[in-house]
Design a protein around this nucleic acid. Structure first.
Lengths: 159, 159
DNA sequence: AATGAAATTTGCAGATA
DNA sequence: TATCTGCAAATTTCATT
C-alpha cells in the first residue's frame, strides 16, 4: 500500500454504518453524516482503496441453506517446526468446511471453526480428509449447540 | 416465516456468488447464471425475503481500524439454571467487544470471540465489565496470535 | 422468466474554498 | 486537500407479455 491518511471521526462512522449494512446508499450516508454525496463517495472509495474495507459480502443463514452444524476444533501439532506448520496450513486452506483457522496461545496451537451439513458430515470430515493430516498431534472438538451472538461487526469506537 | 420454496441449484450458486462479493451487479450474475437480469432480481429478492440472505456487510480490517487484538474466551457458569444463563447472555449482549457467543459442548459452557484495541484493553474489559458478571465461574482466555484463515463464507455445495 | 422502460443510484466532471 | 453542484452513465426496479 501507500501512505495511508489517518482516519477521522467521519471515517469511523462510515465504517460502522457500512459494516452494519452494506446496502445503504450514498444518499442515506450523506444524510446521516451531513456531507454531500460526492464527499461520501470519495471517502468510501478511499476507505476501500486503502484497505480499511476489505470486502462486501452477503451473510447467509447456514441452517436454512442446509449447513446446520458448527464446530470449534482445537488442534495441536506433533512438531512445531515452520515446515510442519506451513504444510498443515496449506492443507487446511483447501478444506472449504474450515472457515476459520487461528493460531492461538494456550495448550493447543490452532483453533478452527468448521461448518458442515450435520454431525455426520463433520464426522466424515474428521475421519476422512482431516485424518490424512499427518501433522496433527491432538484434536479436541466442541460442538456449537446454539449461537447466542454473532455480530459480524467490529467494535469501532465512535468518539 | 411462511412456506419457503426449496432452493434449486441456481439459488445455491447465487448465494455462493453473493457471499463472496455482495457488490456484484445483477448484470454480472445474469451472465454467470445464464438468466435475464429480471429473473436474477426476482430470485435474489426471494432469497432475501425468505431469510436465506440475512444481511449485507462490509468487512472491516480490524487492525487497520485500530482493533488489533482478538481473543477466544471459554466461560463456565457457576449455576446452570435457565435464569442464570439468561442473565449472563443479556449482559454479554450489551458488550460490543464480544462479537460472538456460542453455547458449546465440552468442559466449558460458552465460547466467546472478543475484539479489542490491544491486550491492555482486553485486560480492562475482563477486569472491569466482565468481572461484574456474577454468573461466571471460570474463564480461560486464548490470545489469537495470527489469523491463518477467515473466509466469511459458508461451504455451500454447488452440485 | 423475458423484454423494455422508468426510477434510482453511482460515478465523475468542473468549480469553490 | 477536501468539499460542493450538477450531470451522464450504470444499475435497479417494475409493468407488461
Amino acid at each position: 500500500m501507500e501512505n495511508l491518511t489517518k482516519l477521522d471521526k467521519i471515517d469511523y462512522r462510515l465504517l460502522n454504518l457500512l459494516q452494519n449494512n452494506a446496502k445503504v446508499t450514498n444518499a442515506y450516508l450523506s444524510q446521516q453524516i451531513g456531507l454531500s454525496q460526492a464527499a461520501i463517495f470519495e471517502r468510501v472509495k478511499r476507505l476501500e482503496n486503502d484497505g480499511y474495507i476489505k470486502n462486501y459480502y452477503a451473510q447467509i443463514d447456514g441452517p436454512k441453506a442446509g449447513l446446520g452444524a458448527t464446530f470449534f476444533v482445537q488442534i495441536s501439532l506433533t512438531n512445531n517446526s515452520r515446515k510442519s506448520m506451513d504444510s498443515f496450513l496449506q492443507k487446511i486452506d483447501e478444506l472449504d468446511e474450515v472457515i476459520e483457522c487461528h493460531n492461538i496461545t494456550g495448550s493447543s496451537n490452532f483453533l478452527l471453526k468448521i461448518v458442515t451439513k450435520d454431525l455426520h458430515s463433520f464426522q466424515d470430515l474428521v475421519m476422512g480428509e482431516m485424518s490424512k493430516l499427518e501433522e496433527i498431534g491432538s484434536l479436541e472438538s466442541m460442538i456449537v449447540l446454539s449461537v447466542m451472538k454473532d455480530s459480524k461487526t467490529v467494535p469501532i469506537p465512535l468518539n
